[in-house]
Design a protein around this nucleic acid. Structure first.
Lengths: 127, 127
DNA sequence: GTTTACGTTTACGTTAACGTAAATATTGGC
DNA sequence: GCCAATATTTACGTTAACGTAAACGTAAAC
């Protein structure tokens, strides 16, 4: 079962980024496409990593942070010490994410108030 | 009722940023402290604006985006056209925020799975 | 056989959001 | 009167995350 591959512009199109961006991610070691001659061949795993990176970016994470989170997924840490360290990072990240959720909810509430006022003003204007 | 004021290092301490950061925000027009001689005197309103800026930053917004959101709060737009434009921006921002919430929930779920595996591995190790 | 479309490397440019350093007031405490 | 703490302005430096341009390879299409 030969795994499906993607070329660079295919992925760029799918995710709405430039090829430069993807090459930059390779430079940074975020993805590691195979080569066919000089051309890059991306695996489904590469594709997922890009997806995860972009998700991280949407919530304001730096590329380094994205890597940190992605790296948490593959458990190449065996001993108890490493596992404890991982748990520590998981807790820290979770706390940040919860804070962000709170911030978003606060902002949503504020904007909802503005929207109310706005719609009321419009209704009053037409009356 | 003389409004309370804050000096720069007071606010910097409260929010865990440097004075440079606050001066930079003034340069950008994000806050407009009064002056007593050369010294800056920040109003409670300035303080709130800084708070809102930092909240925006926590969820990955640029300073320009923070300004955009903050500006939505004060309705110095009267006519229907402006109100419609404001509603448009409100909807756009709301959509972004909801996407971000989704992203956060997805990531939280993923990390919870990792945590499970992690704790299980630790438990198995001690058995 | 030469456009056209896509790929490559190399390398310098750009923007945001401050950091950092230097030189200079101002001010309360001893 | 002087020292330490805190304020100021000016200005150059830094990092992340790409943008952009140049110069080139290659393969299908007409």
């Amino acid at each position: 079962m030969a795994e499906r591959t993607y070329n660079i512009s295919e992925l760029a199109r799918e995710f709405g980024v430039t090829t430069r961006t993807i090459r930059f991610y390779e430079e940074k070691g975020l993805v590691s496409p195979r080569r066919e001659g000089r051309k890059r061949l991306f695996s489904p795993a590469d594709r997922v990593r890009i997806k995860l990176i972009l998700r991280g970016k949407r919530i304001g994470m730096s590329l380094d942070e994205c890597v940190e989170v992605i790296d948490m997924y593959d458990p190449r840490n065996n001993n108890a010490e490493q596992l404890q360290a991982l748990l520590q990072r998981l807790r820290a990240r979770r706390a940040k994410l919860l804070q962000q959720k709170q911030d978003i909810d606060d902002m949503l509430a504020g904007l909802a108030d503005v929207q109310q006022l706005c719609e009321k003003a419009l209704a009053d204007a037409t009356t």
